[in-house]
Design a protein around this nucleic acid. Structure first.
Lengths: 253, 253
DNA sequence: AAGTGGTCTAGACCACCCC
DNA sequence: GGGTGGTCTAGACCACTTA
């Protein structure tokens, strides 16, 4: 009979560190409070800085921390619940939906977008860039693609300032028959990262949506949400508030 | 007049490396093909192994690679589209929905779950653990919580084998009035990771759902989906197939 | 100028898988 | 036993913010 082997599978240091820090955040820190710097924290826990950073990275991924170069590491507030429909079937840009247009061009869509829209690969489409802001901070960057066939009544005298509003106005004259969406994990491209106030490569939730009218795909959008600060909400019962982070909603079976 | 400064913001090595590898995966490798090992790749690109790993980690996060300890790094197939409703308003466990029950206990729910359900913090609830399998591999691990009040007709003589089916059967006698969901990024806990065939800390998409009946929350579930292999689909137009990865659907504005 | 997080190096050892 | 990816170290320098 050997001794009972409690640590037959010793957990990695960074994993244990993450647990300790997570508990400390709950009990010893307030939202917005700044943590000691990484070199001090590493020394305090007796690990290399890279090991500490591995724990911090996971906590940031889970929305518990926010790190800013040149500033420091702060305790993040709970994630915002962001509705991504379909609460009511509405066209993008209709009503007050917290999106702000930042640009609009007519250009050939990438191959995958053409496949989504069902257009020819080199077909020029209206491409509207928008940003979604909540509580004063950007939460999503979007590219909305509208084939010319969906907006036949578009006037010809368009300036950069009138292009996007005109496309949206024409789009809204169609009857929206349905929409579908998909969500997947991605990393922010350089342009999206800049608009989201993050570094390139930051984790994002990519929402791809298709809008149907007249039996065809009338428009499509690719929205890039900050994964660290957002919780996407769906469904007919409305967005709901939770009081804790998602980790707290899960337990061992 | 100085010279034009093309590289005023030099991109990090790992970022450039990621781009190079991403292109190589498209042009020189097939799905399932095994890559050279990390030490060889690092030497080939003239960088330290840690730097190469930073690039590989991002590519794995984006679903382009699959890495397995003791085996190697392979080119991942496109992500699976996984429907997470509401395609039709149905109770969990109804019909053929690809979930397999692996356990069931009656125990006090964690505080956040009690808040979701609207039950007392120490109220015992039926907790069913299920696993979702697609194409022969696990894609999600779930905990489904059902308060006793939602299944009043539950018989008393329950064995581990009959517990879960009985709870589901009783649940299905209620009329489902609505459901809502939220999606956020998380990292796999040890128990979920084991069932998903991943290491602890692997990125996951956490889907929290509430099911309404008789004007109350009759059940709630927390589902943990593998973020590397899954694209979650929502909406009334049905899951759709895309031919490329999400990166291909995005372009610079 | 000082302090922060971000990137990078060149090693080492460990856990796991397969032969 | 040999090869793989996973963890960890102890440094260095860079980019950015703030004062």
């Amino acid at each position: 009979m050997g001794t009972t082997q409690l640590e037959s599978v010793p957990e990695p240091k960074y994993w244990h560190l993450k647990t300790v820090l997570n508990d400390a955040l709950d009990s010893e820190f307030e939202v917005g409070e700044i943590l000691p710097n990484e070199r001090d924290l590493a020394a305090r826990f007796g690990v290399a800085r890279a090991t500490l950073r591995q724990a911090l990275e996971q906590l940031e991924l889970e929305g518990r921390l926010q790190r800013r170069r040149g500033v420091g590491t702060t305790v993040a507030p709970p994630r915002m619940g962001v509705s991504v429909g379909p609460s009511a079937n509405t066209w993008p840009g209709a009503g007050i939906d917290a999106w702000e247009t930042v640009g609009c061009v007519e250009a050939a869509a990438p191959a995958a977008i053409a496949a989504l829209l069902g257009t020819a690969p080199d077909q020029a489409v209206h491409t509207i860039r928008r940003v979604r802001v909540m509580r004063g901070q950007p939460v999503a960057a979007e590219l909305l693609y509208v084939p010319p066939a969906s907006v036949p009544g578009l006037p010809g005298d368009l300036t950069p300032a009138t292009h996007a509003p005109a496309v949206l106005r024409e789009l809204h004259t169609l009857e929206l028959e349905g929409e579908d969406r998909s969500v997947e994990l991605g990393s922010a491209r350089a342009d999206d990262a800049k608009q989201l106030d993050r570094l390139p490569g930051a984790p994002v939730l990519v929402v791809t949506a298709r809008y149907y009218a007249a039996g065809r795909v009338a428009a499509a959008s690719v929205s890039t949400y900050r994964a660290d600060t957002c919780r996407l909400t769906f469904g007919d019962a409305g967005a709901f508030e939770v009081t804790h982070h998602q980790q707290d909603t899960r337990q061992a079976s």
